[in-house]
Design a protein around this nucleic acid. Sequence first.
DNA 1: CGCGGCTTTGATGTTCATCAAGTAAAGTGG
DNA 2: CCACTTTACTTGATGAACATCAAAGCCGCG
Lengths: 225, 225
Amino acid sequence: MESCRSCLYNSALFEGLAEDELDYLAGFTHYLSFRKGETVFLQGEDIRYISFLKSGLLKVFKNAPEQKGQIISIAKPNDCVGLLSVFSNRRYQYSISALEDSVIYYVELSAVHHILRNNGDFGIRLLGRISKAADLIINTTYDIYRKNLRGRIAFILREFADDIYGSDQFELPVSRKEIGELIGMTTENVIRILSEFRRDGLISMQGKSVSILNKALLRTLEKFA
Amino acid sequence: MESCRSCLYNSALFEGLAEDELDYLAGFTHYLSFRKGETVFLQGEDIRYISFLKSGLLKVFKNAPEQKGQIISIAKPNDCVGLLSVFSNRRYQYSISALEDSVIYYVELSAVHHILRNNGDFGIRLLGRISKAADLIINTTYDIYRKNLRGRIAFILREFADDIYGSDQFELPVSRKEIGELIGMTTENVIRILSEFRRDGLISMQGKSVSILNKALLRTLEKFA
DNA sequence: CGCGGCTTTGATGTTCATCAAGTAAAGTGG
DNA sequence: CCACTTTACTTGATGAACATCAAAGCCGCG
Protein backbone atom coordinates (compact mmCIF):
# COMPACT_ATOMS: atom_id res chain seq x y z
CA MET A 1 0.00 0.00 0.00
CA GLU A 2 1.72 3.10 -1.26
CA SER A 3 0.34 5.48 1.37
CA CYS A 4 1.70 3.29 4.14
CA ARG A 5 5.02 3.10 2.39
CA SER A 6 5.41 6.88 2.23
CA CYS A 7 4.22 7.26 5.78
CA LEU A 8 6.84 4.90 7.07
CA TYR A 9 9.37 6.76 5.04
CA ASN A 10 8.44 10.02 6.70
CA SER A 11 8.39 8.58 10.19
CA ALA A 12 11.47 9.41 12.22
CA LEU A 13 11.25 5.98 13.78
CA PHE A 14 12.18 4.20 10.58
CA GLU A 15 14.64 6.68 9.18
CA GLY A 16 17.83 5.13 7.93
CA LEU A 17 16.16 1.96 6.71
CA ALA A 18 16.86 0.79 3.15
CA GLU A 19 14.23 0.89 0.41
CA ASP A 20 13.62 -2.83 0.49
CA GLU A 21 13.27 -2.82 4.28
CA LEU A 22 10.66 -0.07 4.10
CA ASP A 23 8.86 -1.98 1.38
CA TYR A 24 8.86 -5.05 3.55
CA LEU A 25 7.45 -3.19 6.54
CA ALA A 26 4.84 -1.45 4.41
CA GLY A 27 3.44 -4.88 3.63
CA PHE A 28 2.70 -5.33 7.33
CA THR A 29 1.35 -1.85 7.97
CA HIS A 30 -2.20 -0.52 8.12
CA TYR A 31 -3.89 2.48 9.63
CA LEU A 32 -7.07 3.27 11.54
CA SER A 33 -8.96 6.48 12.19
CA PHE A 34 -10.35 7.44 15.55
CA ARG A 35 -12.93 10.05 16.45
CA LYS A 36 -12.31 12.43 19.31
CA GLY A 37 -13.02 10.62 22.54
CA GLU A 38 -12.64 7.11 21.18
CA THR A 39 -10.43 4.57 22.87
CA VAL A 40 -7.43 3.42 20.88
CA PHE A 41 -6.46 0.62 23.19
CA LEU A 42 -6.71 -0.27 26.83
CA GLN A 43 -4.12 -1.04 29.44
CA GLY A 44 -3.77 -4.81 29.57
CA GLU A 45 -4.47 -5.55 25.90
CA ASP A 46 -2.04 -7.64 23.91
CA ILE A 47 0.63 -5.75 22.02
CA ARG A 48 0.88 -6.86 18.40
CA TYR A 49 1.90 -3.66 16.68
CA ILE A 50 4.23 -0.75 16.88
CA SER A 51 1.82 2.13 16.46
CA PHE A 52 2.54 5.73 15.71
CA LEU A 53 0.33 8.76 15.49
CA LYS A 54 0.04 10.19 11.99
CA SER A 55 -2.32 13.05 12.79
CA GLY A 56 -4.39 14.18 15.74
CA LEU A 57 -3.71 14.10 19.46
CA LEU A 58 -3.82 11.29 22.01
CA LYS A 59 -3.77 10.98 25.75
CA VAL A 60 -1.76 8.25 27.42
CA PHE A 61 -3.05 7.31 30.83
CA LYS A 62 -3.24 4.72 33.57
CA ASN A 63 -6.80 3.67 34.13
CA ALA A 64 -6.34 3.12 37.82
CA PRO A 65 -9.53 3.04 39.87
CA GLU A 66 -10.14 6.79 40.09
CA GLN A 67 -6.81 8.01 41.24
CA LYS A 68 -5.16 11.28 40.61
CA GLY A 69 -2.17 12.05 38.45
CA GLN A 70 -3.06 9.28 36.11
CA ILE A 71 -2.36 10.90 32.73
CA ILE A 72 1.17 10.06 31.70
CA SER A 73 1.56 12.20 28.62
CA ILE A 74 -0.03 13.64 25.53
CA ALA A 75 1.12 12.18 22.23
CA LYS A 76 1.41 14.36 19.16
CA PRO A 77 1.90 13.49 15.49
CA ASN A 78 4.93 11.31 14.77
CA ASP A 79 5.07 10.11 18.35
CA CYS A 80 5.27 6.41 18.80
CA VAL A 81 2.56 5.44 21.24
CA GLY A 82 3.25 2.76 23.78
CA LEU A 83 6.83 2.49 22.63
CA LEU A 84 8.03 1.89 26.16
CA SER A 85 5.77 -1.11 26.60
CA VAL A 86 6.42 -2.62 23.20
CA PHE A 87 9.68 -4.35 23.96
CA SER A 88 9.30 -4.98 27.66
CA ASN A 89 5.80 -6.35 28.06
CA ARG A 90 3.36 -8.52 26.25
CA ARG A 91 0.52 -6.20 27.25
CA TYR A 92 0.10 -2.45 27.23
CA GLN A 93 0.92 -0.75 30.50
CA TYR A 94 -1.13 2.30 29.55
CA SER A 95 -4.40 3.12 27.88
CA ILE A 96 -4.72 5.47 24.94
CA SER A 97 -7.66 7.57 23.82
CA ALA A 98 -8.07 10.25 21.17
CA LEU A 99 -8.24 13.89 22.27
CA GLU A 100 -8.82 14.94 18.66
CA ASP A 101 -9.71 13.04 15.51
CA SER A 102 -6.63 10.95 14.90
CA VAL A 103 -5.05 8.58 12.43
CA ILE A 104 -2.77 5.86 13.73
CA TYR A 105 -0.46 3.62 11.73
CA TYR A 106 0.18 0.08 12.87
CA VAL A 107 3.25 -1.91 11.92
CA GLU A 108 3.11 -5.57 12.87
CA LEU A 109 5.55 -6.21 15.67
CA SER A 110 6.75 -9.46 14.14
CA ALA A 111 7.80 -7.59 11.00
CA VAL A 112 9.75 -5.06 13.06
CA HIS A 113 11.43 -7.90 14.91
CA HIS A 114 12.40 -9.38 11.57
CA ILE A 115 14.09 -6.17 10.49
CA LEU A 116 15.75 -5.80 13.88
CA ARG A 117 17.29 -9.24 13.62
CA ASN A 118 18.94 -8.40 10.33
CA ASN A 119 19.82 -4.78 10.94
CA GLY A 120 21.67 -4.08 14.14
CA ASP A 121 22.05 -0.40 13.38
CA PHE A 122 18.29 -0.05 13.31
CA GLY A 123 18.29 -1.59 16.78
CA ILE A 124 20.81 0.92 18.00
CA ARG A 125 18.75 3.83 16.69
CA LEU A 126 15.63 2.36 18.25
CA LEU A 127 17.46 2.02 21.56
CA GLY A 128 18.31 5.69 21.30
CA ARG A 129 14.76 6.74 20.61
CA ILE A 130 13.29 4.69 23.43
CA SER A 131 15.87 5.93 25.89
CA LYS A 132 15.22 9.52 24.92
CA ALA A 133 11.47 9.06 25.29
CA ALA A 134 11.93 7.53 28.72
CA ASP A 135 14.40 10.20 29.79
CA LEU A 136 11.94 12.88 28.77
CA ILE A 137 9.04 11.40 30.72
CA ILE A 138 11.17 10.89 33.80
CA ASN A 139 12.64 14.38 33.72
CA THR A 140 9.28 15.99 33.06
CA THR A 141 7.65 14.10 35.88
CA TYR A 142 10.30 15.14 38.37
CA ASP A 143 10.16 18.71 37.11
CA ILE A 144 6.39 18.96 37.48
CA TYR A 145 6.31 17.65 41.01
CA ARG A 146 8.99 20.10 42.08
CA LYS A 147 6.85 23.03 40.99
CA ASN A 148 4.04 24.59 42.97
CA LEU A 149 0.57 24.78 41.44
CA ARG A 150 1.15 28.06 39.59
CA GLY A 151 4.33 26.67 38.11
CA ARG A 152 2.51 23.55 36.96
CA ILE A 153 -0.20 25.50 35.18
CA ALA A 154 2.41 27.75 33.61
CA PHE A 155 4.27 24.67 32.47
CA ILE A 156 1.29 23.00 30.85
CA LEU A 157 0.16 26.19 29.13
CA ARG A 158 3.58 26.70 27.64
CA GLU A 159 3.73 23.06 26.63
CA PHE A 160 0.44 23.34 24.74
CA ALA A 161 1.57 26.56 23.08
CA ASP A 162 5.12 25.59 22.17
CA ASP A 163 5.27 21.83 21.84
CA ILE A 164 1.81 20.88 20.69
CA TYR A 165 0.19 23.74 18.80
CA GLY A 166 3.16 25.95 17.96
CA SER A 167 1.04 29.01 18.67
CA ASP A 168 0.17 31.19 21.65
CA GLN A 169 -3.51 30.88 20.77
CA PHE A 170 -5.10 27.47 20.91
CA GLU A 171 -8.11 25.45 21.94
CA LEU A 172 -7.50 23.31 25.01
CA PRO A 173 -8.00 19.70 23.91
CA VAL A 174 -8.64 18.60 27.47
CA SER A 175 -11.01 19.38 30.31
CA ARG A 176 -9.92 21.12 33.48
CA LYS A 177 -10.21 17.79 35.19
CA GLU A 178 -7.82 16.20 32.71
CA ILE A 179 -5.32 19.01 33.18
CA GLY A 180 -5.46 18.21 36.85
CA GLU A 181 -4.77 14.54 36.18
CA LEU A 182 -1.89 15.45 33.91
CA ILE A 183 -0.03 17.66 36.37
CA GLY A 184 -1.21 16.23 39.68
CA MET A 185 -3.64 18.74 41.14
CA THR A 186 -7.37 19.00 41.78
CA THR A 187 -9.83 20.29 39.20
CA GLU A 188 -10.82 23.16 41.48
CA ASN A 189 -7.28 24.41 41.77
CA VAL A 190 -6.71 24.14 38.03
CA ILE A 191 -9.72 26.42 37.54
CA ARG A 192 -8.75 28.74 40.36
CA ILE A 193 -5.26 29.32 39.00
CA LEU A 194 -6.38 29.67 35.40
CA SER A 195 -8.84 32.33 36.61
CA GLU A 196 -6.08 33.99 38.59
CA PHE A 197 -3.85 34.06 35.49
CA ARG A 198 -6.68 35.67 33.57
CA ARG A 199 -7.29 38.29 36.26
CA ASP A 200 -3.60 39.09 36.29
CA GLY A 201 -3.48 39.50 32.51
CA LEU A 202 -1.22 36.53 31.89
CA ILE A 203 -3.72 34.86 29.60
CA SER A 204 -7.12 35.47 28.14
CA MET A 205 -9.53 32.58 28.14
CA GLN A 206 -13.11 31.72 27.38
CA GLY A 207 -14.19 28.13 27.65
CA LYS A 208 -11.45 26.10 26.02
CA SER A 209 -9.96 28.96 23.98
CA VAL A 210 -6.72 30.26 25.43
CA SER A 211 -4.38 33.05 24.39
CA ILE A 212 -1.12 33.57 26.15
CA LEU A 213 -0.58 37.29 26.71
CA ASN A 214 2.52 37.46 28.86
CA LYS A 215 4.74 34.56 28.01
CA ALA A 216 7.82 35.95 29.70
CA LEU A 217 6.09 36.09 33.06
CA LEU A 218 4.66 32.63 32.47
CA ARG A 219 8.16 31.31 31.92
CA THR A 220 9.37 32.97 35.09
CA LEU A 221 6.51 31.42 37.06
CA GLU A 222 7.36 28.05 35.59
CA LYS A 223 10.92 28.31 36.81
CA PHE A 224 10.65 29.96 40.16
CA ALA A 225 7.32 28.73 41.39
CA MET B 1 40.68 -11.60 31.81
CA GLU B 2 38.88 -14.67 33.09
CA SER B 3 37.10 -12.94 35.97
CA CYS B 4 35.55 -10.43 33.59
CA ARG B 5 34.54 -13.22 31.27
CA SER B 6 32.65 -15.08 34.00
CA CYS B 7 31.11 -11.89 35.27
CA LEU B 8 29.71 -11.04 31.88
CA TYR B 9 28.45 -14.57 31.66
CA ASN B 10 26.55 -14.18 34.91
CA SER B 11 25.16 -10.78 34.07
CA ALA B 12 21.55 -10.86 32.94
CA LEU B 13 22.33 -8.11 30.48
CA PHE B 14 24.46 -10.35 28.31
CA GLU B 15 22.56 -13.57 28.66
CA GLY B 16 21.94 -15.34 25.39
CA LEU B 17 25.22 -14.25 23.84
CA ALA B 18 27.43 -16.89 22.24
CA GLU B 19 30.75 -17.96 23.74
CA ASP B 20 32.80 -16.07 21.19
CA GLU B 21 30.74 -12.91 21.66
CA LEU B 22 31.30 -13.03 25.41
CA ASP B 23 34.99 -13.61 24.84
CA TYR B 24 35.09 -10.61 22.56
CA LEU B 25 33.35 -8.38 25.11
CA ALA B 26 35.55 -9.65 27.93
CA GLY B 27 38.50 -8.23 26.05
CA PHE B 28 36.97 -4.79 26.41
CA THR B 29 35.88 -5.12 30.01
CA HIS B 30 37.49 -4.00 33.24
CA TYR B 31 36.30 -3.29 36.76
CA LEU B 32 36.87 -0.71 39.46
CA SER B 33 36.24 -0.68 43.19
CA PHE B 34 34.69 2.23 45.03
CA ARG B 35 34.62 3.00 48.72
CA LYS B 36 31.41 4.02 50.41
CA GLY B 37 30.77 7.68 49.62
CA GLU B 38 32.99 7.86 46.55
CA THR B 39 31.69 9.30 43.30
CA VAL B 40 31.45 6.84 40.42
CA PHE B 41 30.70 9.41 37.79
CA LEU B 42 29.12 12.81 37.48
CA GLN B 43 26.21 14.06 35.44
CA GLY B 44 27.64 15.56 32.27
CA GLU B 45 30.61 13.25 31.89
CA ASP B 46 31.18 11.46 28.60
CA ILE B 47 29.69 7.99 28.32
CA ARG B 48 32.20 5.47 27.08
CA TYR B 49 31.11 2.32 28.85
CA ILE B 50 28.13 0.25 29.72
CA SER B 51 28.64 -0.21 33.42
CA PHE B 52 26.96 -2.62 35.78
CA LEU B 53 27.13 -3.06 39.50
CA LYS B 54 28.75 -6.32 40.57
CA SER B 55 28.49 -5.83 44.31
CA GLY B 56 27.55 -3.04 46.68
CA LEU B 57 24.92 -0.32 46.45
CA LEU B 58 24.78 2.92 44.48
CA LYS B 59 22.65 6.00 44.46
CA VAL B 60 21.59 7.59 41.19
CA PHE B 61 20.83 11.27 41.45
CA LYS B 62 20.53 14.60 39.73
CA ASN B 63 23.01 17.07 41.11
CA ALA B 64 20.75 20.03 40.62
CA PRO B 65 21.64 23.13 42.63
CA GLU B 66 20.20 22.02 45.95
CA GLN B 67 16.73 21.01 44.94
CA LYS B 68 14.48 18.45 46.45
CA GLY B 69 13.48 15.06 45.11
CA GLN B 70 16.78 14.68 43.38
CA ILE B 71 17.59 11.02 43.99
CA ILE B 72 16.27 8.97 41.10
CA SER B 73 16.88 5.47 42.33
CA ILE B 74 19.10 3.10 44.24
CA ALA B 75 20.99 0.55 42.15
CA LYS B 76 21.64 -2.92 43.50
CA PRO B 77 23.91 -5.70 42.26
CA ASN B 78 23.36 -6.73 38.64
CA ASP B 79 21.69 -3.43 37.84
CA CYS B 80 23.01 -1.64 34.83
CA VAL B 81 23.77 1.90 35.89
CA GLY B 82 23.04 4.73 33.54
CA LEU B 83 21.50 2.34 31.04
CA LEU B 84 18.87 4.88 30.11
CA SER B 85 21.45 7.47 29.13
CA VAL B 86 23.76 5.09 27.30
CA PHE B 87 21.95 4.98 23.99
CA SER B 88 20.29 8.35 23.97
CA ASN B 89 22.95 10.77 25.10
CA ARG B 90 26.65 11.31 24.77
CA ARG B 91 26.83 12.41 28.38
CA TYR B 92 25.41 11.02 31.59
CA GLN B 93 22.12 12.56 32.66
CA TYR B 94 22.65 11.45 36.25
CA SER B 95 25.40 11.22 38.80
CA ILE B 96 26.29 8.04 40.65
CA SER B 97 27.92 7.58 44.02
CA ALA B 98 28.54 4.55 46.20
CA LEU B 99 26.30 4.00 49.25
CA GLU B 100 28.35 0.95 50.20
CA ASP B 101 31.71 -0.40 49.04
CA SER B 102 31.02 -1.39 45.46
CA VAL B 103 32.58 -3.08 42.46
CA ILE B 104 31.55 -1.92 39.02
CA TYR B 105 32.27 -3.61 35.68
CA TYR B 106 32.81 -1.51 32.59
CA VAL B 107 32.28 -2.77 29.07
CA GLU B 108 33.48 -0.46 26.33
CA LEU B 109 30.50 0.95 24.52
CA SER B 110 32.12 0.56 21.11
CA ALA B 111 32.46 -3.16 21.73
CA VAL B 112 28.78 -3.43 22.67
CA HIS B 113 27.88 -1.54 19.53
CA HIS B 114 29.93 -4.00 17.53
CA ILE B 115 28.01 -6.95 18.94
CA LEU B 116 24.71 -5.12 18.46
CA ARG B 117 25.41 -4.60 14.79
CA ASN B 118 25.92 -8.27 14.22
CA ASN B 119 23.34 -9.69 16.58
CA GLY B 120 19.85 -8.25 16.24
CA ASP B 121 18.43 -10.58 18.87
CA PHE B 122 20.79 -9.10 21.44
CA GLY B 123 19.39 -5.70 20.45
CA ILE B 124 15.84 -6.90 21.01
CA ARG B 125 16.69 -8.20 24.46
CA LEU B 126 18.47 -4.97 25.29
CA LEU B 127 15.42 -3.01 24.16
CA GLY B 128 13.35 -5.11 26.52
CA ARG B 129 15.63 -4.51 29.47
CA ILE B 130 15.83 -0.78 28.91
CA SER B 131 12.09 -0.47 28.50
CA LYS B 132 11.48 -2.42 31.67
CA ALA B 133 13.91 -0.27 33.60
CA ALA B 134 12.23 2.89 32.34
CA ASP B 135 8.76 1.53 33.03
CA LEU B 136 9.76 0.73 36.58
CA ILE B 137 11.16 4.19 37.28
CA ILE B 138 8.12 5.89 35.77
CA ASN B 139 5.62 3.75 37.64
CA THR B 140 7.49 4.09 40.91
CA THR B 141 7.73 7.84 40.58
CA TYR B 142 4.01 8.22 39.94
CA ASP B 143 3.21 5.84 42.78
CA ILE B 144 5.33 7.70 45.27
CA TYR B 145 3.89 11.11 44.52
CA ARG B 146 0.36 9.79 44.88
CA LYS B 147 1.06 8.67 48.43
CA ASN B 148 1.00 10.86 51.50
CA LEU B 149 4.09 11.07 53.69
CA ARG B 150 3.28 8.00 55.79
CA GLY B 151 2.71 6.00 52.65
CA ARG B 152 6.04 7.12 51.23
CA ILE B 153 7.98 6.09 54.30
CA ALA B 154 6.13 2.78 54.39
CA PHE B 155 7.02 2.29 50.74
CA ILE B 156 10.71 2.98 51.15
CA LEU B 157 10.99 0.81 54.26
CA ARG B 158 9.38 -2.10 52.45
CA GLU B 159 11.58 -1.50 49.44
CA PHE B 160 14.73 -1.69 51.53
CA ALA B 161 13.47 -4.82 53.28
CA ASP B 162 12.14 -6.72 50.28
CA ASP B 163 13.99 -5.51 47.21
CA ILE B 164 17.38 -4.52 48.51
CA TYR B 165 18.22 -6.50 51.62
CA GLY B 166 15.75 -9.38 51.50
CA SER B 167 15.29 -9.11 55.26
CA ASP B 168 13.08 -7.22 57.68
CA GLN B 169 16.17 -6.21 59.65
CA PHE B 170 18.72 -4.03 57.95
CA GLU B 171 21.02 -1.05 58.26
CA LEU B 172 19.82 1.99 56.40
CA PRO B 173 22.47 2.80 53.78
CA VAL B 174 21.28 6.39 53.55
CA SER B 175 20.81 9.37 55.82
CA ARG B 176 17.38 10.75 56.72
CA LYS B 177 18.13 13.60 54.38
CA GLU B 178 18.76 11.22 51.50
CA ILE B 179 15.53 9.36 52.21
CA GLY B 180 13.82 12.70 51.90
CA GLU B 181 15.47 13.35 48.55
CA LEU B 182 14.49 9.91 47.35
CA ILE B 183 10.80 10.15 48.12
CA GLY B 184 10.26 13.90 47.92
CA MET B 185 9.84 15.11 51.48
CA THR B 186 11.78 17.16 54.02
CA THR B 187 14.33 15.67 56.37
CA GLU B 188 12.30 16.75 59.37
CA ASN B 189 9.22 14.91 58.20
CA VAL B 190 11.20 11.77 57.42
CA ILE B 191 12.39 11.77 61.01
CA ARG B 192 9.00 12.66 62.43
CA ILE B 193 7.26 9.81 60.66
CA LEU B 194 9.97 7.27 61.39
CA SER B 195 9.64 8.26 65.07
CA GLU B 196 5.88 7.95 64.81
CA PHE B 197 6.20 4.47 63.30
CA ARG B 198 8.46 3.50 66.17
CA ARG B 199 6.06 4.89 68.80
CA ASP B 200 3.24 2.96 67.17
CA GLY B 201 5.19 -0.28 67.17
CA LEU B 202 5.45 -0.58 63.39
CA ILE B 203 9.23 -0.64 63.47
CA SER B 204 12.05 -0.59 65.95
CA MET B 205 14.96 1.64 65.16
CA GLN B 206 18.18 2.94 66.62
CA GLY B 207 20.38 5.07 64.47
CA LYS B 208 20.50 3.39 61.10
CA SER B 209 19.39 -0.05 62.32
CA VAL B 210 15.80 -0.80 61.44
CA SER B 211 13.57 -3.80 62.14
CA ILE B 212 10.15 -4.03 60.66
CA LEU B 213 7.75 -5.33 63.29
CA ASN B 214 4.34 -5.02 61.64
CA LYS B 215 4.75 -5.50 57.94
CA ALA B 216 1.07 -6.04 57.26
CA LEU B 217 0.16 -2.64 58.65
CA LEU B 218 3.06 -1.10 56.77
CA ARG B 219 1.70 -2.53 53.56
CA THR B 220 -1.74 -1.17 54.34
CA LEU B 221 -0.31 2.28 54.98
CA GLU B 222 1.57 2.09 51.73
CA LYS B 223 -1.62 1.41 49.82
CA PHE B 224 -4.21 3.54 51.51
CA ALA B 225 -2.14 6.49 52.65
C1' DC C 1 -37.32 18.95 30.10
C1' DG C 2 -34.43 16.97 33.36
C1' DC C 3 -30.31 14.60 34.28
C1' DG C 4 -25.38 14.19 34.64
C1' DG C 5 -21.05 15.99 33.82
C1' DC C 6 -18.20 20.17 33.50
C1' DT C 7 -17.14 24.68 35.37
C1' DT C 8 -16.79 28.17 38.84
C1' DT C 9 -16.32 30.40 43.48
C1' DG C 10 -16.18 30.46 48.42
C1' DA C 11 -15.38 28.47 53.05
C1' DT C 12 -13.03 25.20 55.78
C1' DG C 13 -9.60 21.93 57.31
C1' DT C 14 -5.51 19.03 56.71
C1' DT C 15 -1.13 18.17 55.33
C1' DC C 16 3.15 19.44 54.90
C1' DA C 17 7.25 22.79 54.61
C1' DT C 18 9.60 26.09 57.12
C1' DC C 19 11.72 28.06 61.06
C1' DA C 20 13.89 27.57 65.38
C1' DA C 21 16.58 25.39 68.83
C1' DG C 22 18.89 21.84 70.87
C1' DT C 23 21.33 17.17 71.23
C1' DA C 24 24.17 13.65 69.39
C1' DA C 25 27.66 11.97 66.30
C1' DA C 26 31.40 12.35 63.31
C1' DG C 27 35.14 14.32 61.20
C1' DT C 28 39.46 17.85 61.66
C1' DG C 29 43.46 20.15 63.09
C1' DG C 30 46.63 21.17 66.73
C1' DC D 1 44.00 12.53 72.09
C1' DC D 2 41.28 16.42 72.88
C1' DA D 3 39.08 20.81 71.68
C1' DC D 4 36.69 22.41 67.72
C1' DT D 5 33.76 22.43 63.84
C1' DT D 6 30.73 20.56 61.09
C1' DT D 7 27.14 17.46 59.83
C1' DA D 8 23.34 14.48 61.14
C1' DC D 9 19.45 13.89 63.98
C1' DT D 10 15.38 15.24 66.77
C1' DT D 11 11.28 17.81 68.53
C1' DG D 12 8.11 21.59 68.73
C1' DA D 13 5.72 25.72 66.97
C1' DT D 14 4.00 28.29 63.11
C1' DG D 15 2.21 29.34 58.69
C1' DA D 16 1.48 28.49 53.78
C1' DA D 17 -0.07 25.68 50.28
C1' DC D 18 -3.23 22.76 48.87
C1' DA D 19 -7.29 19.33 49.12
C1' DT D 20 -11.82 18.80 50.40
C1' DC D 21 -16.50 20.11 50.94
C1' DA D 22 -20.45 22.73 49.52
C1' DA D 23 -23.39 25.22 46.39
C1' DA D 24 -24.75 27.11 42.26
C1' DG D 25 -24.70 28.05 37.14
C1' DC D 26 -23.88 26.08 32.65
C1' DC D 27 -24.12 22.99 28.77
C1' DG D 28 -25.03 19.03 26.01
C1' DC D 29 -27.80 15.01 25.47
C1' DG D 30 -31.24 11.54 25.67
